[in-house]
């Protein structure tokens, strides 16, 4: 059993195994399942993630108020245009993250990761790395298990609820999970996964949850895209050998404390941030006919 990133890292290093191996063994004890059942269960969720990451790429979906209808297909078309700044790969990652968000907002089927509002980040990052670098499905699923295992440490010691910790706790933690999984999928060490996790989370420290009209659309979808990219650059910094002195457990704790310091207006109540702008208020009036 592990209850911190430090413990998880020590267990992987003592046995010279990847993070996902310790996470699987822990889950077998935790849920009283066989290894095959744990993997099968994650695979089912992976299938849902694959579908939601693709579904809105070609076809705009109807969303309440139409706030993000077509956001994924627009980005996907651009990703293939050959004239992007960040290249096809990064733009495809963003399009897939947006697709998951658009599916979620259209009352489609998604797998929360770790929440419904942040469901696009981990799938977009891991699926697109797997495709771009010819990874096997087993490898992508192993990385998904690593990302999920890192998420359990946050749930146990802090929060992943926007109403408690702001967007840093939802999209920020999703980015950190995705970064840890991306490092493993790219051949990095468990220590590098921890480093990438920390880097992704410090990049969003203090990010508020300010949903326009209280809907899981703006800025949630856009932040799924930007946090997917945060995961990629954090993974690349760690893989490149960047040394970050603050341990992941302390970064999680800092994120939690920052969340507690956020006023209620900035925690999912739609009373502050982008949700409190004039235009956001107009949008709210239009949708709810107030």
């Amino acid at each position: 059993m592990y209850h911190s990133c430090r413990q998880l890292l020590e267990m992987t290093e003592a046995r010279k195994v990847p993070i996902h191996e310790i996470v699987i063994e822990n889950e077998m004890k935790n849920s009283n399942l066989s290894r095959a059942e744990v993997i099968e269960n994650i695979k089912k969720r992976y299938r849902i993630m694959q579908t939601s990451a693709e579904r809105a790429l070609e076809q705009p979906l109807s969303t309440e108020g139409g706030l993000i209808t077509g956001i994924a297909s627009t980005q996907y078309r651009y990703s293939k245009s050959g004239s992007t700044l960040c290249g096809r790969f990064v733009n495809t990652v963003m399009a897939r993250a947006l697709s998951c968000s658009e599916v979620n907002a259209s009352m489609g089927k998604i797998c929360a990761m770790p929440t419904a509002g942040s469901c696009g980040i981990v799938p977009a990052v891991l699926i697109t790395i797997g495709e771009e670098y010819n990874k096997t499905e087993e490898e992508v699923i192993a990385a998904l298990i690593t990302a999920s295992g890192m998420g359990t440490i946050v749930v146990e010691n802090a929060t992943v609820a926007g109403s408690e910790g702001g967007c840093q706790a939802e999209c920020g933690v999703a980015a950190a999970m995705a970064a840890a999984g991306a490092v493993e999928l790219s051949g990095g060490t468990p220590a590098m996964s921890m480093e990438a996790f920390s880097l992704a989370l410090i990049n969003v420290m203090g990010l508020v949850c300010d949903p326009v009209a209280g809907l899981v659309q703006i800025p949630c979808a856009q932040r799924n895209a930007s946090q997917a990219v945060n995961a990629l650059l954090s993974a690349d910094m760690a893989l490149g050998g960047a040394v970050f002195p603050i341990p992941a457990d302390e970064v999680i704790d800092a994120m939690y404390k920052v969340g507690k310091l956020l006023p209620v207006q900035l925690r999912e109540t739609a009373m502050g941030g982008i949700a409190a702008t004039e235009t956001a208020k107009d949008i709210t009036d239009r949708i709810f006919h107030r």
């Binding site: 059993m1 592990y2 209850h3 996470v23 822990n26 889950e27 935790n30 849920s31 744990v38 269960n41 994650i42 089912k44 969720r45 849902i48 309440e64 599916v103 979620n104 907002a105 259209s106 009352m107 489609g108 089927k109 998604i110 797998c111 929360a112 990761m113 770790p114 929440t115 419904a116 509002g117 469901c119 998904l144 298990i145 999920s148 295992g149 998420g151 359990t152 440490i153 749930v155 146990e156 992943v160 999970m177 809907l215 899981v216 659309q217």
Partner: peptide, 23 residues
């Protein structure tokens, strides 16, 4: 009891909100 990875990777649900839709 630790936290299950299926609490993090899940639930599988119809969006957009685990409390306002799935619940």
């Amino acid at each position: 009891m630790g936290v299950s990875i299926f609490q993090v990777a899940g639930p599988v649900m119809i969006g957009p909100s685990s409390s306002h839709t799935a619940g």
